Computed example of a mutant assay.
Amino acid sequence: MREFLINVTRYPRYLVAFSLGVIESVVGPMARRRSNPVTAVALVGALISGGVSLTLVLRAMVTAPVS
């Protein structure tokens, strides 16, 4: 049972490390390109549209009628 609990405690650490790695690999290149105004506007637009899309999808999933 002790080995099982040790394995279970590894998963949250793995999730945090994986998430931080993905965020760093996405934000790093974007941060280098922010000096160009056209690219900065495009990045802001992409972030806003991604947030709106995510919000609409999650709202549709939560309020979907159950048949």
Rank of each mutant, 00 (worst) to 15 (best):
M1L: 03
M1W: 00
M1E: 08
R2I: 09
E3P: 00
E3A: 12
E3G: 06
E3W: 07
L5A: 11
L5E: 10
L5W: 11
L5I: 11
I6S: 07
I6F: 07
N7W: 06
N7E: 12
N7F: 05
V8F: 08
T9D: 06
T9K: 02
R10S: 02
R10C: 00
P12R: 03
P12W: 07
R13P: 00
R13D: 02
R13A: 13
Y14R: 11
Y14N: 07
Y14L: 15
L15G: 01
V16T: 14
V16D: 02
V16S: 06
V16M: 10
A17I: 08
A17T: 12
A17E: 11
A17D: 06
F18P: 00
L20Q: 07
L20I: 13
L20T: 11
G21L: 10
G21Q: 03
V22A: 05
V22E: 02
V22C: 01
I23L: 15
I23Y: 08
I23T: 15
I23M: 14
I23K: 07
I23Q: 12
E24D: 04
E24T: 10
E24K: 04
E24M: 09
E24L: 11
V26R: 04
V27K: 11
G28M: 04
G28D: 03
G28H: 03
P29F: 01
M30S: 01
A31R: 03
A31S: 08
R32G: 01
R33K: 13
R33M: 15
R34F: 08
R34V: 06
R34Q: 06
S35A: 14
P37R: 05
P37G: 03
P37T: 03
P37V: 02
P37Q: 02
V38W: 07
V38I: 14
V38T: 09
A40T: 03
A40S: 09
A40H: 06
V41C: 06
V41H: 03
V41T: 14
A42F: 13
A42N: 11
A42T: 12
A42Y: 09
L43A: 01
L43Y: 05
V44A: 15
V44Q: 12
G45Q: 09
A46K: 03
A46G: 09
L47P: 00
L47Q: 09
L47C: 11
I48D: 04
S49M: 15
G51F: 05
G51A: 06
G51I: 05
G51H: 00
G51W: 00
V52A: 14
V52L: 15
V52T: 12
S53L: 14
S53C: 14
L54N: 01
L54A: 10
L54G: 01
L54I: 07
L54S: 02
L54C: 04
T55R: 04
T55C: 12
T55L: 15
L56T: 05
L56S: 02
V57S: 00
V57W: 03
V57C: 00
V57R: 05
L58K: 01
L58M: 11
R59D: 07
R59W: 10
A60G: 10
M61N: 13
M61G: 06
T63N: 05
T63R: 14
A64C: 02
A64T: 04
P65M: 12
P65G: 07
V66H: 09
V66W: 10
V66S: 04
S67G: 13
